[in-house]
Simulated scan of single mutants.
Amino acid sequence: MITLQLLQQIVVFFLMMACGFLVVKRGLIDAKSSRMLSVICIYIIMPCVMINAFQIEYSKSIRDGFLLAVAAAVLIHIFLLVFVRIIGKPLKLSVLEKASIIYSNSGNLVIPMVTVVLGEKWVIYASAFLSVQMILMWTHGESLMEAKAGVNWKKILCNINLIAIIIGIILFFARIRLPVVIGNTMSQISATLGPVCMIMLGMTMTEVNWKEIFSHSRIYLITALKMIVTPLFVLLLLKYSPLASMVKDGQTILLISLMAVITPSATTVVQLAQLYDEEPVYASTINVMTTIVSIVTMPLMVMLYLA
């Protein structure tokens, strides 16, 4: 049932992307207008999603589930870092390819998927994965792309989405509920995350050189590693570990962690590639290709996990 719902939602997302693609192709708006949607998504919608996720009734089971989701996210990222380090030399992976395999588009895809497929009350567990990845992205990920050691603590601590997660956690553990008007505002803004992100992605795809995507010699290797090989390892790790038995609804919580891993390559990697001039066109190519194949691989991985 969940697999079918996920497949249906992925198709819905692709149709939303098609809407963004068509309005640009018809000349109604410019592709560069996607930056405006990106700003709205990052600075308005995502913070509302994060805070709203924690606006649920405090209970021991939810607290334990959130801690399990954090532990699973840490474990998954440790595995990904070690795995990429092992295969990096024999496969001659570039820094861009390593980052593309490690980091997923969990923010833009998983939260709206979890909301639709499982319900709003489960988003809190998706935010656990996102918070762990966000910290790693702006420490390990950025230093990898910049080819420079060190941590940019300012970028981490000033990241609006991380701030929103911290606020949400404080409100949750302090058992503080926002006033109804503010809560309803955040809830309704949060509901726009999926459509806005997908339309924005569709708009950016109009600038993609499709011939270059399918003719790039290494794109198939990186796509296979990102969308099939690493998800299978993580699937086995989560499915056969004792983690699920530790808390109530442990299997579903770990499913959300798996859903975060099996999403396409992170759009943030493309942004970092542009910033540090680290093959930005190739970065976009990986992002698009992994997005295309996700319509098949994501439901398949969920089906295998639930089997």
Rank of each mutant, 00 (worst) to 15 (best):
T3A: 04
L15A: 10
A18R: 10
L22Q: 14
S34C: 07
V39C: 09
V39Q: 02
M50I: 13
R63H: 14
G65H: 02
A69V: 02
I78F: 08
F79A: 15
I87T: 12
G88V: 00
L96F: 06
I101V: 09
G107M: 08
V110E: 09
I111L: 15
V117S: 05
L118H: 14
E120N: 13
E120S: 15
S127C: 14
A128V: 01
V132H: 01
Q133E: 13
L136P: 08
H140C: 03
E146V: 05
A147V: 08
K148M: 01
W153E: 07
L157V: 01
I160F: 13
I167N: 01
R177C: 13
I182T: 06
N184D: 11
L193D: 13
V196Q: 01
I199Q: 04
M200A: 10
L201S: 12
G202N: 10
M205T: 11
N209Q: 13
W210A: 10
W210N: 03
W210Q: 14
K211G: 03
E212S: 03
I213Y: 00
I213C: 04
S217F: 01
L225S: 06
L225G: 02
V229G: 00
V234G: 12
L236D: 01
L238N: 13
Y240P: 06
L243R: 04
A244T: 01
V247Y: 11
D249R: 10
I253A: 00
T263R: 11
T267P: 06
Q274L: 15
Y282N: 05
Y282A: 12
T285G: 03
N287S: 11
T297F: 02
M298T: 14
L300K: 02
M303C: 08
